[in-house]
């Protein structure tokens, strides 16, 4: 009987050595250790043994069982490892193939850049003000020191609804509306659509966007205007950007300035984009005209302020190298998907 047991052990060793899959291992377990297995069959004959032999054979049988079980466990681990490796090898893919991009849309480039500009000014303590696009002539012109028959009205050919109602030709009327409602300190920007009677071409549109800025408080200086614009433009265009103020005339600011930023193509050396000047005109600005303050009930002897206005389309065109303004309003997906 002892011999039978040892034979079983040897046979099991052989079978298990040859086993390569989890299934073969299981088959071997059933064959040798199962309820109807070889070892069980041998043990059934234990009853015929003498009382002395029984514990001896029993111990051998247990040892054989233990050894086979250990063998199976050991083998199982290595077979599992091999099987997993084979599976991983079979699962190999070409990781250079295109990913499955989720369907995402995008903001219009005018909105994205405007968002950026808003964030810059919010960071500088500016709030965002709004005003109507269909506006009273009073706010669009008269309160801004541009009475009827003023020659400055020529430079802004406006769309009229009635004699007193106009599509605002600038965002500056928001200045007046804010100053009428709110006492200093005031620090706002007012982005929005404006309208001018210009025929459509690569650089003109009858509808475009401006961003107005207004600061009113005690002791506001022209140097503050320069510093604010410098901070803004350096944040927008990068720390290398330089700004240049040139004298100009706007009826609602005095002194007034046109503000140029160093050409970001050539960095100020002069190139085709800046027409050799090294600078590109980017916005208009100035100290709020005392008459405008007065008309809004703010005493110009106590308070002073500055205002500025820039064209959003122009900023975005410069920034993204877009050469035709019409692209913004055509909304061609091939254009919109680029930003």
């Amino acid at each position: 009987m002892k011999e039978q047991l040892l034979n079983i052990k040897e046979e099991a060793k052989k079978v298990l050595d040859a086993a390569k899959t989890a299934q073969e291992l299981e088959d071997a377990r059933v064959r040798f250790l199962g309820k109807k297995g070889e070892l069980t069959a041998v043990l059934r004959g234990m009853g015929q043994l003498s009382a002395e032999e029984r514990p001896v054979i029993g111990q051998i049988a247990n040892e054989v069982r233990g050894e086979i079980e250990t063998l199976i466990e050991t083998k199982k681990a290595s077979v599992g490892q091999q099987e997993r490796m084979a599976k991983l090898a079979a699962e190999k893919i070409d990781v250079t193939m295109a990913g499955k991009v989720p369907q995402m849309g995008k903001r219009h480039p005018l909105t994205s850049v405007l968002d950026e500009i808003k964030e810059i000014f919010i960071g500088m303590g500016f709030s965002i003000a709004e005003g109507p696009e269909v506006e009273l002539d009073y706010y669009n012109f008269e309160a801004l020191n541009i009475p009827k028959d003023h020659p400055a009205r020529d430079t802004q050919d406006s769309f009229y609804i009635t004699e007193n109602v106009v599509l605002r030709s600038q965002t500056s009327p928001v200045q007046v509306r804010v100053m009428e409602k709110q006492k200093p300190p005031i620090r706002i920007i007012a982005p929005g659509r404006v309208y001018r009677s210009d025929a459509v071409d690569a650089t003109h549109s009858p509808v475009f966007h401006q961003i107005e800025g207004l600061v009113v408080d005690k002791g506001i200086t022209m140097a503050d205007l320069k510093g604010t614009l410098e901070t803004f433009l350096k944040t927008l265009y990068g720390p290398e950007a330089k700004i240049r103020l040139r004298p100009h005339h706007f009826p609602f600011t005095e002194p007034s300035a046109e503000v140029d930023v160093s050409c970001f193509v050539c960095g100020g050396k002069g190139c085709r984009v800046c027409k050799g000047e090294g600078f590109i005109e980017i916005l208009g600005a100035g100290m709020v005209h005392p008459k405008v303050l007065e008309r809004c009930g703010i005493d110009p002897n106590v308070y002073s302020g500055f205002a500025f206005g820039l064209g959003l389309e122009r900023v975005v065109m410069r920034r993204m190298n877009i050469d035709d303004l019409r692209l913004f309003y055509d909304n061609d997906l091939r254009f919109l998907k680029q930003f």
Binding site: K118, F121, I122, G123, M124, G125, F126, S127, I128, P185, R187, V215, D217, K218, G219, I220, T221, M222, A223, D224, K226, G227, T228, E230, T231, R244, L245, R246, P247, P255, A257
Partner: peptide
């Protein structure tokens, strides 16, 4: 200031009490 030179105006930032700025 236009004869003095706009380019000679220093760049400063407003010194005023904090104005709250949120959308």
């Amino acid at each position: 200031v236009r004869i003095f030179g706009y380019d000679k105006i220093p760049s400063t930032l407003m010194r005023s009490e904090t104005v709250s700025a949120v959308k």
